[in-house]
Simulated assay, not measured.
Amino acid sequence: MSIAEQLQGFVQFCQAHITGDEKGEAQVFLDRFFVAFGHEGAMQAGAVFEKRIEKGSKKGKTGFA
């Protein structure tokens, strides 16, 4: 399958299944994005999803980046 066909499949998937809920669909979107470019998935391409970081608060709470 050509890269153009893979990207068209990605676009069709997004149009059918991605509704814009970033928090709930970001990882699915990114995984399919990397697959469209020939990777097995996002993790196999070296992507790192949200990583916990310290917010710098006095209470030592963490956030995501």
Rank of each mutant, 00 (worst) to 15 (best):
Q44W: 06
G41R: 07
A42I: 03
A45S: 10
A65H: 12
A65V: 12
E54K: 13
Q44Y: 08
G41F: 07
F64W: 15
E25A: 03
I53S: 01
F29Y: 14
A26T: 05
K51V: 12
D31H: 08
E40R: 13
D31F: 06
T62I: 11
V35P: 00
K61M: 09
G56T: 01
D31V: 00
A65G: 09
G38I: 14
G60A: 13
G63H: 05
D31C: 03
A36W: 04
A47S: 10
F29P: 03
A42E: 01
G46H: 04
Q27N: 11
V48N: 09
I53P: 00
A65D: 13
S57W: 10
A36T: 12
K61N: 12
K59R: 14
F34L: 08
V35L: 05
A36S: 15
G56W: 02
G41C: 13
F33S: 01
V48C: 07
F29C: 07
F64P: 01
I53K: 02
G56F: 03
A45Q: 03
Q44A: 15
A26L: 13
V48A: 11
G38S: 09
A36C: 10
E40T: 08
A42V: 04
S57G: 14
S57K: 08
A45V: 01
V35G: 00
G38E: 07
R32K: 15
K58C: 05
S57M: 09
E40K: 14
K51G: 10
G46C: 02
G63W: 05
F34V: 00
F64M: 14
D31K: 03
Q27T: 06
A47M: 12
V35R: 09
T62A: 04
G56M: 06
E25M: 04
L30Q: 07
K58Y: 11
M43K: 11
F34C: 08
F34G: 00
G46D: 02
F34T: 00
K61P: 00
K55H: 08
A26V: 12
G46E: 02
R52I: 06
A45L: 05
R52E: 15
R52Y: 12
A42T: 04
L30E: 05
A65P: 03
Q27I: 04
A26R: 11
